[in-house]
């Protein structure tokens, strides 16, 4: 028995060593950094420990802007993208002809390079010397004023950011939900039909509960993904996100480390831990709600 235990640990050793070196150690290190004032990489020195880093970050207007941006992004994109995905999946699973074709079309953005998608968004939204951009042309056509979506007002930039995020996460959610819908035993729908169940009731009392585990999976991973948003913002607004007022929490962490104003690992660590606390709280709330709601 003891021998076996030892063997087991031996087998696990490479994985543990790897995880320890590249996951646990850095995590602990970040925690340590976040409490060390003015830590300097080069000289490996600090000026004492305390909560100063947290206080600095929480009083930094750029950080507060990033938090605000991130929260707006999360609150708008997670419900909307999940909702759209559900509607599209329902439509997809109710058609018979051309379903495969539509499924491919909806899945294309997932396998398309982010930069290519970014380019498409440029064509849609960016004003250049030659054109106002597709969306503006549309707005003009309906008699509206052009809006600068990339360098213009905050709401316009936020709109583009949310639009882009929803666009990017939609295919995966559609994929998951169409397969969840397809895995519901058709006999349930037959029984429901024989029992004269109205369509809306079939949806709320049968379909939704049956796919609820997948739905909650998507919501939880959606929250986490949206809180970690960064690269999409860079693709849209360039690297100087603070100037554009479009920074996110992860973006702030990156800037503190490597950006033009960078070189502050302590602040970065503190910001990262604040993000961690937020994501943890939201996920725990999500799990608590889903444990109560998801019954199968």
């Amino acid at each position: 028995m003891k021998q076996n235990n030892l063997k087991g640990w031996l087998y696990l050793l490479p994985a543990i060593a790897f995880l320890g070196l590249f996951m646990v150690y850095p995590l602990v290190d970040v925690l340590v950094y976040s409490f060390e004032e003015g830590y300097n990489f080069a000289s490996q020195t600090d000026m004492g420990t305390g909560l100063y880093n947290y206080s600095y970050v929480l009083h930094d207007p750029y950080f507060m802007q990033a938090v605000k941006n991130t929260f707006i992004l999360v609150i708008i994109t997670v419900p909307l993208s999940t909702g759209f995905a559900l509607v599209i999946s329902l439509a997809l699973s109710s058609i018979k002809k051309l379903r495969d074709a539509f499924q491919t079309i909806y899945f294309l953005p997932y396998v398309t390079n982010t930069l290519a998608v970014g380019l498409v968004f440029m064509v849609l939204f960016k004003r250049t010397d030659y054109t106002e951009g597709m969306v503006n042309l549309l707005i003009n056509w309906f008699g509206g004023e052009s809006v600068d979506f990339i360098d213009g007002p905050y709401w316009a930039k936020m709109f583009v950011m949310c639009f882009y995020t929803i666009w990017v996460v939609l295919p995966f959610k559609i994929l998951i939900l169409t397969s969840a819908l397809a895995s519901v035993n058709p006999d349930y729908y037959k029984v429901a039909q024989v029992d004269a169940t109205p369509r809306w009731r079939v949806f709320t009392r049968i379909t939704l509960p049956m796919i609820s585990p997948m739905l909650f999976y998507l919501i939880i991973t959606g929250f986490i993904g949206a809180f970690k948003a960064y690269s999409d913002e860079v693709a849209l607004f360039g690297t100087n996100l603070n100037a554009a007022g479009m920074n996110t929490i992860v973006g702030y962490v990156y800037d503190m480390l490597y950006g033009d104003s960078g070189g502050y690992p302590s602040y970065a660590a503190a910001a990262a831990l604040i993000l961690f606390a937020i994501v943890l709280t939201i996920t725990v709330i999500n799990l608590l709600v889903s444990n109560r709601r998801v019954k199968i």
Binding site: D187, K190, V194, P209, K295, I296
Partner: peptide, 21 residues
């Protein structure tokens, strides 16, 4: 007539009970 208007009751081989109810 569609099934809902026929007034029939049906029991399937796998029962098809709603698992969440």
């Amino acid at each position: 007539l569609p099934p809902e208007l026929r007034g029939v009751g049906m029991v399937f081989q796998n029962y098809a009970l709603y698992p969440h109810l």
